[in-house]
């Protein structure tokens, strides 16, 4: 395959999945490390043979992204020095910046943190990334019916949380 078509193929994959992969990765490793995970994911795509990916590009990317993110979490101890650098050298860590960032968090995003990992992951894959149940099953390595149960439980829980006044942000109201 010539470089040109591959490049446009990768480019269109980037256009389509960059944002949702970043959101998904941020949910696992935090927003600071998410771009690295996603970069790794696309680099893996560059090396993959297109025939092997064709037909399930979305799930393929999320699987690689997920594995890479989990790998990064396992490397936890090796990551720490980088985080320390972030604290000292990054204006991100300046108080004024931190406040702005906290304010930008929407309520739903915040409530997601209350969900168990699997439920949160299912919500992100479904609503942020737009995967089908079948694709989610591939990514999460579960059966389709199991995915359905997890997602339903997650939504039910979210409805309860939304109906309660939020302690953290002091905002109430349901749907």
């Amino acid at each position: 395959m010539g470089a040109e078509p591959v490049q446009s193929w990768i480019q269109s994959a980037l256009d389509r999945y960059e944002a949702s992969l970043l959101r998904y990765a941020a949910g696992v490793v935090g927003s600071a490390a998410a771009p690295d995970v996603v970069q790794d994911t696309f680099l893996a795509l560059c090396r993959a043979e297109p025939e092997k990916v064709e037909g399930h590009l979305g799930p393929w990317l999320f699987v690689v992204c997920r594995n890479r993110a989990l790998e990064l979490l396992r490397e936890g101890s090796r990551l720490r020095p980088l985080e320390e650098q972030d604290v000292t050298g990054n204006p991100d860590s300046e108080p004024w910046r931190r406040v702005e960032r906290q304010q930008s968090f929407g309520r739903v995003q915040h409530l997601l943190q209350e969900l168990p990992d699997r439920q949160r992951e299912a919500v992100m894959l479904k609503f942020a990334a737009g995967l089908s149940y079948k694709e989610m099953a591939e990514v999460m390595e579960l059966s389709v019916s199991h995915v359905g149960v997890i997602l339903h439980t997650a939504l039910t829980r979210l409805r309860v949380l939304l109906a309660e006044p939020s302690e953290v942000l002091g905002v109430g109201g349901g749907l």
């Binding site: 941020a26 927003s31 771009p35 739903v108 992100m124 942020a128």
Partner: peptide
């Protein structure tokens, strides 16, 4: 809401 949430873009 999730899709409009700002994400740390790739540089």
């Amino acid at each position: 809401e999730l899709r409009s949430e700002p994400v740390p873009a790739l540089s």
